[in-house]
């Protein structure tokens, strides 16, 4: 069984947000609630300012604190290493959102993050968070895939509806390979500069493992012990160095 993981090369990432948009479309997310986003930072002052950005999907941790705190085991880890939510079991206590160090979980039933409120236009009748005119081909509540129902938490699934159908033993889901492209997560497939790689972390010959090894891939907030399955290639040390602390000097 594969252990799916992602590598994001920050030296290639242009911060274009195509990944966020693709995620939103693929997963029928509400505006502002796409499962993954790109954070932007302005550091320093003229004449030496820095504009930085940092793509942030769910880290699909090996030791997910969100799973350990979930009182109903609604959050669980699949055999192939993906953290999913069973919407049929989720009671909407939001403890997982508290426990996630990466801030990548979403509760349905709240004020819209982005105005105007499209939920009011495409009303989900209190059963689903909204009823968009375009719907993804899948709705699987036990895996937290599809349009989010009322009163539950949702998160990135690594596009589980795609990757779970990939041929067994595939070391990498390379979007450049026509035979595999349909199994590639939307954010990886759409990444214009090719900054994202997706593959089997348990396969020592996979491209993701070679990149992590050759380019010293690091993980975000590794000190939390959550052991993300998303690695960053920074070209210059730890992933944490790419993310300013909230107390870092103001611009």
């Amino acid at each position: 069984m594969a252990k799916w993981g992602m590598v994001i090369d920050l030296e290639k990432c242009t911060g274009c947000q195509a990944c966020s948009t693709a995620c939103q479309m693929e997963n029928n997310r509400l505006p502002g609630e796409n499962y993954q986003d790109v954070l932007y930072y302005t550091e320093g002052k003229q004449p030496t300012p820095q504009l930085k950005w940092f793509p942030r999907p769910c880290m699909q941790c090996e030791e997910p604190s969100c799973m350990h705190v979930c009182p109903t085991r609604a959050t669980y880890k699949t055999e192939d290493g993906v953290v999913l939510i069973d919407w049929n079991k989720c009671i909407g206590c939001k403890y997982c959102m508290i426990a996630c160090p990466y801030g990548v979980r979403f509760y349905t039933d709240e004020k819209p993050l982005v105005e105007p409120n499209v939920k009011a236009v495409f009303n989900g009748d209190r059963k689903l968070s909204w009823n968009p005119p375009y719907k993804g081909p899948q709705q699987d509540a036990a895996k937290g895939i599809g349009i989010q129902p009322d009163g539950v938490v949702s998160k990135c699934t690594f596009c589980y509806h795609k990757i779970s159908k990939a041929p067994k033993g595939t070391p990498d889901l390379d979007p450049a390979n026509p035979e595999l492209v349909e199994y590639v997560p939307a954010c990886v497939r759409t990444c214009a500069p090719g900054a994202r790689y997706f593959g089997d972390l348990d396969n020592p010959n996979s491209q993701v493992n070679r990149l992590i090894s050759d380019k010293q891939g690091t993980r975000l907030l590794d000190h939390t012990g959550n052991k993300p399955q998303v690695y960053y290639l920074t070209g210059a040390g730890a992933a944490g160095s790419a993310v300013p602390g909230t107390r870092a000097a103001k611009a």
Binding site: V69, P71, T72, K89, C90, I91, C93, Y107, G151, V152
Partner: peptide, 19 residues
Amino acid sequence: LGHPFRMLWAIPLNFQPTS
């Protein structure tokens, strides 16, 4: 809570001891 009544069966049937 999002689903207070679901809690009544979901916790006993799926008790997560680490929570």
